[in-house]
Amino acid sequence: MRREGSPWQGLGTVLLKELADHFDSPRMLLLALLMVLAAAVPFYSAVDQLRTTTSEDPFLLLKLFNPGGQTLSVVAILGFVIPVMAIGLGFDAVNGEHNRRTLSRILAQPIYRDALLAGKFLAGIIILAVNLMCLWLLVAGFGVFFLGVPPSGDEFARALVFYFIAVAYAGAWLGMAMLFSVLFRSPATAALLALGVWLFMTLLWPMISPFIAALVSPPDVRYTLLGILDPQTAAWQQGLSRISPYLLFEEATRTILTPTTPSLGPVLDQIRALRGEVVGAALPLRESLAIAWPGAVSLIAGAIVLFVATYVVFQRQEVRA
């Protein structure tokens, strides 16, 4: 049975209203502050470290985001903070309307539910994108200011790709937060569960997945004796780790931001090391992109799948309070 009229009717109105709400809300200010403060510490340590090696390093801008080594990077912090921000923006998107008893009044206007949901999602994405862009400009701007070396075109392009991957990552978490806001009538439940998933994916899964990989495909004794990973176990390990958006994000951004040591995953790295390849020669942007592409697309796909799930559940939900 076809319904008449455009599903996008009222989308712009909802979008503008949600944007205005976000910009006005203290919550959004708090989340933006959290992000900037969290990024400030690794940024300063990166600047400190880079000052001593400025002349030798061809990728200064990228090093600001991800200095490599054991130091905590801006990227790692973002991998942690972006989900918190996205959950903070999305956890009460729909159940909040229910609880304020505004939902049935709004849906009694000549719009479809599609417009309400899409408007809220787009507003969240735009807010996250604006915040990330601010942070990105801050890092790049202060980086040039402190180090005094302008970035090359290639560096700039890589940093920009990093930005888009970060937005896709934010979209995936926003999609999850909104799904929970439709599934659970209480915003507190939705927020707690979303944060639970976030903790599991970012902290627990990286620790658990190697164990599961070893269980599913026990490493061959010969590899163990040589002290290296069984390629098959490693493949499982990588596949499992990619379930977590955090690890996907980490992998994709690492590839883009560190052109000199492109990680192809443990399997390929090992093979290359065995073949005596020089690991450390800079890859051209095109090839870095090719490596990062599946990860980035997975994040975008994740965002879309979660949004579709939210949409389906919301369409079937009763509007009565």
Binding site: D21, P110, Y112
Partner: peptide
Amino acid sequence: VRQPLEVKRRVGYLPDLVGFY
């Protein structure tokens, strides 16, 4: 069912315990 927008354009609904922002 088929033309909800047309219906909702003509009908005003004041829900039980109406809520506002």
